[in-house]
Design a protein around this nucleic acid. Structure first.
Lengths: 144, 144
DNA sequence: TCCTAATTTAGACTTATTCTAATCACCGCT
DNA sequence: AGCGGTGATTAGAATAAGTCTAAATTAGGA
C-alpha cells in the first residue's frame, strides 16, 4: 500500500494538501516502526525523547491529519482511548483478554467475508475484525 | 440467549451475585428496548426522565456490572466514547461513514469466519466485525 | 423486623481530547 | 534581504468521558 521513504511521503502529503513538517514526519516514522498500537500520549512521550519535540496539541493535530490523509489508522478497542497505527498493510486485530496485548492479523490469515450479507441492505465499503482470546504467552502462563 | 422478563433477569442477576436494584433493572430494561447503541451519558439523561433516578456514577457502575455479568455489551467504534447494548442476540455492526448511524448485523447475515486463520498462533474465543460504508438513507440522499 | 454487605449518591478527581489565541516557519514576491 | 500570508506549532485553558471517595441508603437473608 503506502511506502515510507521520505520523498514518497512528501509527495503523498502534498497531494493531500499537507506540509511535511518535522513533527509530522516524526510521528509517521515512529508509527511505521511500531507495532505497539500506541496511544497519542505514548506517542508524545516517546517522540519527545529527542528532536523534534511535539506538543500534545500537535500530536493530536498530526494524528488527525495523517488519518484524514490515509497514512494512519485509529482504532478504538476496549476502552475510551484511541490507538494508532501506520497504514502499511491491511490487517485485522487480535486482543488478548488477559494481558490486553494487541496483535495484527494479516487479512490473508482470514478468508474474506462472503459478499452475500455484506451487500444486504447497505453499501459496505470495508470491514475490520477484532478477535479476542488468549495470546500465546498468557496461554503458556496458564497451562503450566 | 438472554431473555428479559423481570423474574428471569432476577435469577440471572442473582446467579451473577448481583442485587437487582431499581436502577439496574431500569438500565437493563432501557437497553433491551433500545437499538440506538447509546452512550452512558445518553442513558443517564433518558433514564432520569422518570423514576428511578440514577446518578452518573451509578450509570457507570451499573453498566460495568451488567457487562461483567454478560447482560450488556460495550462497544467502542470511531471515537473515545463507550456505547452500550443489551446482549440479546449475536450480531456484528455496520457504521455509516456519513451519518454515523450504527446498525446491528445478525451473525446469520455474515457467513462465519473460517477456523483456519483464527487458530493460527493464538486462541481466538470470539470475534466481532465492524463494517463501514453508506447506509440506505444517506445513499438515497446522495444518489438523488 | 433487624443486620450487614452491597449499592447509590454528589461531587471531586483523573484522563483523553479539543479549542484558543499567540507565535513561528516556510514560500513566493518585490 | 525584506514582506506578507497561509498554515503549523505551542502552552495552556476548556470540555468530555470515566473513575474514585466517603457518607447515606437499601436489598435481601436471618
Amino acid at each position: 500500500m503506502t511506502t515510507h521513504t521520505r520523498s514518497q511521503i512528501e509527495s503523498q502529503m502534498r497531494a493531500a494538501g499537507l506540509k511535511l513538517t518535522p513533527q509530522r514526519f516524526a510521528v509517521l516514522d515512529y508509527l511505521s516502526r511500531s507495532s505497539a498500537h500506541p496511544t497519542a500520549e505514548q506517542i508524545r512521550i516517546d517522540l519527545n525523547r529527542r528532536f523534534p519535540r511535539a506538543s500534545r496539541a500537535t500530536v493530536y493535530n498530526t494524528l488527525n491529519a495523517l488519518c484524514r490523509a490515509g497514512f494512519v489508522n485509529a482504532i478504538y478497542l476496549d476502552d475510551a482511548v484511541g490507538r494508532y497505527e501506520a497504514v502499511i498493510n491491511s490487517h485485522h486485530h487480535f486482543v488478548c483478554r488477559a494481558c490486553g496485548h494487541i496483535e495484527d492479523v494479516p487479512v490473508e490469515h482470514v478468508r474474506a467475508l462472503p459478499q452475500k450479507g455484506l451487500r444486504a441492505n447497505r453499501k459496505v465499503e470495508n470491514y475490520e475484525i477484532v478477535m479476542r482470546g488468549i495470546c500465546d504467552s498468557c496461554d503458556e502462563r496458564t497451562t503450566d
